[in-house]
Simulated scan of single mutants.
Amino acid sequence: MEHSHSHDHGHSHSVQINKSNQNVFLIGIGLNLAFVVAELVAGLIYNSMALLTDAGHNLSDVASLVISMVAFWMAKKKSSAVYTYGYKKTTVLAALLNAVVLLVAIGILGYEAGTRLARPEPVQGDVIAWVAGLGIVVNSVSAFLFFRQKQELNSKAAYLHLLADALVSLGVVVAGIIISRTHLYWIDPAIGLAIMVVILISTWGLLRDSFKMTIDAVPVGIELEAIKKLIKKVPHVKHVHHVHVWPLSTTENALTAHVVIDEHLPFTRKLDVIAEIKHELEHNNIHHSTIEMAQEAH
């Protein structure tokens, strides 16, 4: 079977953090990292599982923000004769490592919280409330910074996540106040366990998605059959087969496909059809496409 190849490596629709967003991410990372240290120190000094687990929760936010920054930095590195797609895949490996480390931390903290729940120890509820109150301020300020940049996908995700964290901190404040008034010390490890459930749910999703990306599964949010139908809708496309879609990074996707185009069209018109296919794919979150023209079997 005779065939010809057309390759495209454009970036016009890829999701990347622009220069102005980079500063917002740096500020967000700095604020949240400082708060993680404050929660960790206070949790150890005042023996609070709620503060320690919330520190782990906020650390996951810092890791997520750092991963986005790594994606920005890696996207700027040029490809080479060995790494022909550059270093974009490292963002996927970083996400996978982040998920594994968080799961290990959850296991350790979960064991400690369970032990503490069985034998509650005295904690200072007012200290827990004040430190968690600081968390509300940090997360709210960070969320506001990202809200101003929310037209960008990574910033929007960070904004929503930090807003949710502010609500978690509010829950810890309420728990601290209740402990200081009632001396029901079991509330501290109970809140810690509740926060760990929140971390587990989000981390499991991160682990699942990053593992799928690592083995080049179809990216989340893309349906293979829908992509095939999209290509078939382009005028003069008769058939499409051997379609493969995989992630190049946490923000960019690639595709290869064989298409059969109306054989009565001139070659230059066939190239126009391929250009139209690529244009449609770019609008559907596929940034690199390789389309092979093939003759229909008779």
Rank of each mutant, 00 (worst) to 15 (best):
K232T: 15
P247W: 03
A226T: 09
S249M: 05
E223N: 11
H258A: 08
R208N: 11
I231P: 02
R208P: 02
A226G: 06
R269D: 11
F267L: 08
S249H: 07
K212T: 03
T251R: 07
W246K: 01
V243A: 12
V218C: 14
D209L: 01
P247A: 10
T250D: 11
F211C: 05
L230R: 12
A217C: 04
D216L: 13
D209I: 00
I215N: 01
I261V: 15
K228F: 00
L255G: 15
L255T: 15
V237C: 11
L271N: 07
V243Q: 02
E225V: 07
I231E: 01
K238C: 14
H241R: 13
H239S: 14
L271M: 08
E263G: 10
H241I: 12
K232G: 14
L230W: 03
L265P: 02
T268I: 10
L248D: 02
K270Q: 10
V243F: 01
H242D: 13
A217T: 00
V240K: 06
H242T: 05
H258W: 13
K270M: 09
T251Y: 03
A254F: 07
V218R: 03
V245P: 04
R269W: 10
L230S: 06
H258T: 12
F211S: 08
A226Q: 12
N253Q: 08
K212G: 04
E223P: 04
A254S: 15
K233S: 14
R269T: 09
K212F: 05
E263W: 04
H239G: 12
L207R: 03
L255H: 09
T268A: 12
P247I: 02
T256Y: 02
R269M: 11
A254R: 11
E252N: 07
K238S: 15
E263T: 08
A217D: 04
G221Q: 05
V234D: 08
E223H: 09
D209P: 05
V243E: 07
P235L: 13
E225P: 01
H264Q: 10
H236P: 03
N253P: 05
V260F: 05
D262A: 09
K212Q: 06
L224T: 09
T214I: 05
